[in-house]
């Protein structure tokens, strides 16, 4: 196998003594798009945050193109869950996309003409140019997610992590977002998406990672999202609840 874009080895993360993710290992190759699937509380978002080293893991290691995460942060774009964003913040769509240029600018340097052109171009790609000056909270759910995708595009990252990007999103926006993600993947980007809808997962992704605290399966999407495996993943949580 070529050098993996993302390599996770024996990653374990816990919150206040309760384990959220236990002993997860997998590799994602460049130019692949992987769905992270599992029941509520399976640790999907935690896994993304663990890959980004936003949470200190109890054990395990993450490398990006063979290097520690800290050394390649600027090459990783992250689109947070809807609930993590302050939609009343005084910022418009264009300035939100502009945030994507900040990592490359580094501390102290202000975005200039070049960065604004990138932001405008990315907003155009997601079909949001007409709403450039609108405050972020006044947009619809689908439009907001498109703006955040524009921000990820502006970062020109090799690795893109998205946490439930299709929640509260209209069908048109969803199609557009998937299409852009596919283009990025085909151009060599490595994409991980926390995904809820099992029906669409097989259409959207080439790989899947089935998680329920532990890694249950990982591989080509057709081999992972089988009825048996899904039943196993989703049943154990019901058993847990009982």
């Amino acid at each position: 196998m070529r050098q993996p874009a993302i390599e996770v080895r024996n990653l374990s993360i816990s919150y206040f003594g309760t384990s959220a993710v236990t002993d997860v290992s997998f590799r994602a190759a460049p130019g692949t798009m992987t769905a992270i699937v599992g029941p509520n509380g399976a640790g999907k978002s935690t896994l993304l945050k663990g890959i980004l080293k936003l949470i200190e893991p109890d054990a395990g290691e993450v490398t990006i193109f063979g290097r520690p995460v800290g050394a390649v942060r600027k090459q990783i774009a992250y689109v947070p869950q809807r609930g993590d964003v302050d939609w009343n913040f005084p910022i418009n769509a264009l300035d939100t996309a502009l945030l994507g240029t900040y990592p490359r600018l580094g501390v102290f340097r202000r975005p200039g003409k070049h960065e604004r052109a990138i932001a405008r171009d990315c907003l155009n790609k997601v079909g949001m140019s007409d709403h450039a000056l609108q405050q972020i909270g006044t947009l619809s759910g689908g439009q907001q997610q498109r703006v955040f995708l524009a921000r990820a595009l502006a970062q020109q990252a090799d690795i893109i992590l998205l946490d439930e990007p299709f929640v509260g999103v209209d069908a048109t926006s969803e199609r557009l977002i998937v299409q852009i993600l596919h283009e990025l993947r085909d151009a060599g980007a490595t994409i991980l998406v926390v995904h809820h809808d099992l029906v669409t997962a097989t259409d959207y992704y080439d790989h899947a990672l089935l998680l329920n605290r532990r890694l249950l399966a990982h591989g080509p999407v057709g081999e992972v999202l089988t009825p048996d495996r899904l039943a196993e993943a989703y049943q154990s949580i019901t058993a847990h609840a009982l």
């Binding site: 980004l52 993590d84 302050d86």
Partner: peptide, 22 residues
């Protein structure tokens, strides 16, 4: 003024700010 950009992004989306290394 010098850290305007950093204060802005970390106020709006602290997770993104931390993700890219702030």
């Amino acid at each position: 003024a010098a850290l305007y950009k950093e204060l802005q992004v970390s106020s709006f989306d602290p997770t993104m700010a931390a993700a890219y290394g702030l």
